[in-house]
Amino acid sequence: MSKLLTVSPSPHNYGKDTIKSLMYGVLIALIPTTVVSLYFFGLGALIVILTSVFSALIFEYLITKYILKKEPSLLDGSAIITGLLLAFNVPSNLPIIIIIIGALVAIGVAKMSFGGLGNNPFNPALVGRVFLLISFPVQMTSWPVPVQSRMQYLDAVTGATPLGLMKEGLRNGEPVSDLMTQIPNNMQMFIGNMGGSLGEVAGIAILLGLVWMLYKKVITWHIPVSMIGTIIILTGIFWLINPDKYADPVFHVLTGGVLLGAVFMATDYVTSPMTTKGMLIFGTGIGLLTVVIRLFGAYPEGVSFAILIMNAFVPLINIYVKPKRFGEVIKNG
């Protein structure tokens, strides 16, 4: 026998999943959302998405190659996802330079400074987004009006998001029922016809992505369901107590990136807990924080902060929440 046999410990059978296949599973799930954002925000969306994705890729390449001195693995798709998600979290009239700064913070600070894929404690795209929100509050909160601003980029006509309208109106003492007439109806919001970040507007497209990822077993249902469920229950309680001061749960779920956050941001592998029980706690925590920020905080929108705060709890959850062991001996007493 000329060739040498290979010897390794068992198993000798290897599954088909690779980092690449999982990441591309997420990318495919992001296609409907991309299409919807291009439909509503047109040129601006295209520029923002391309800038964000390419700058994320370039930063990832440069940092892996020249700072970490490793073989860059651009094609594993994780940098594309980060870039795309960052683009989904900003308005479509954001200047190119700001997007590039956001991508640098997302990839350079939030991901690579911790050692790259798998080691970052916080969701890179959200860190980028929150950095921009704090650094460029004006640019980050001027929302182009959908459809109408399709062929415009920086000069787009801007309006407020439904959540912004609601917050502002409630502060001025207007009742919810009056404010509801100023914002699009639920169906319009569900298909994405409202002001907002690129990716957060179209509930239906995001849910399509969710169905795909569940079918392909890229993610499990625990985080999205627990997060959205918590938001529905909590806002529902407030709405039942005082429908004049608090908007209804459907409004809360459809606006302000709850769906985008629940499906694509909170489920990020690296920054979510390892056990199903932990995922439920994580999702519930995000839902709770989101509601608290929205109803009682200064920001109209709380999903990004809620996810980042819960990201910080993930190591703790991983330590204290253990899966149910097989044949666990339950101690008496």
């Binding site: 040498l4 010897v7 390794s8």
Partner: peptide, 22 residues
């Protein structure tokens, strides 16, 4: 001379627990 290729975790103890060596 090598008589086989080891393809497990890069750790001597893992290899030694597995077999006599490559």
């Amino acid at each position: 001379p090598r008589t086989n290729n080891y393809d497990g975790a890069v750790n001597c103890t893992v290899a030694a627990n597995l077999y006599s060596g490559d």
